[in-house]
Design a protein around this nucleic acid. Structure first.
Lengths: 149, 149
DNA sequence: TTATTATAGTTACATATGAAACTTATTTCA
DNA sequence: TGAAATAAGTTTCATATGTAACTATAATAA
């Protein structure tokens, strides 16, 4: 009997497709949380979250931390500035480099969204046992290290 | 000592973000395979793969199988028809319903891409032990069932 | 110096995407 | 019947996105 495994591509069993399907549903659910309440895009949200954790960094550093390309970062920052959620100045030492920070309003909004994000993450984790959560962490780490090469 | 877990959002540890990061890298690598060789978009590829497995289905059924919305399906089909990879007729019983099939050229191209996809998937699985592969399968299934509700 | 190269960020252009409106065909049921 | 509702696909429009070109500043080196 021929070994039938892994010689035909069945979409529903194909790992990249399954990952992508799961990820897209999760991302869309989360995006609804901040977009409906605060008219924030996914890119803007990512920059916002990153600035909350890492204040005073530049757009380029933001791009590294968030794995976004510089155009997406630039647009997200402009959007956040237009909405009054982020304050941007240019460094006096190097006038090319931006220095970014959340405004008071940006912090307020962020602290309204953050617990909702965490709550959703917890709702995902909660359907897994503690052991499974550890497995997931380990698997994601392994795969990510691999694909980053 | 305060419990520090899960009360602050750290992007690098946030499950949805980690999933999305991993998924995007994998999807981009795969997309390069078919887009560079055959000028096929990700949507087109998904429809192509699905039609190979499920011939004679309609655009709407394709959308269900691939979890794509009908506009994306419609565009993918048009692209594939323009490239001569897919043949579309309308059912004689219900003239709204399309009946889709790969052309000979479509089959040929698909069978050139398919092994490369599988090879890449195997390269991912290979960095995991058999037990870990089973864990991954199980975790993805659990999470997907959950988010599908 | 000052010409060259590199870096940070923005803009422009072409393409991709999603939501809603639209067209045509079929079904429902008063 | 035949009007209303539903269904399959397509088109339109407004946005989102990625690549490449561009501007301004800083670093390098001849």
């Amino acid at each position: 009997m021929a070994e039938d495994k892994n010689d035909k591509l069945v979409l529903e069993r194909f790992l990249p497709y399954r990952l992508s399907y799961l990820t897209n549903i999760i991302s869309r659910k989360l995006a609804r949380l901040y977009s409906e309440q605060f008219d924030i895009t996914p890119h803007e949200w990512k920059v916002l979250a990153n600035l909350s954790r890492h204040p005073n960094i530049s757009a380029a550093e933001t791009g590294v931390k968030t794995a976004m390309d510089k155009v997406a970062v630039s647009r997200a920052i402009r959007g956040l500035c237009d909405k009054g959620l982020v304050h941007k100045i240019f460094s006096s030492e190097d006038r090319r480099r931006s220095v970014l920070n959340l405004t008071k309003k940006g912090q307020e909004i962020y602290h309204q969204i953050e617990p909702q994000m965490i709550e959703y993450e917890n709702s995902l984790q909660d359907i897994l046992s503690q052991e499974e959560q550890n497995q997931l962490d380990c698997l994601l780490t392994k795969l990510t290290i691999h694909v980053d090469k």
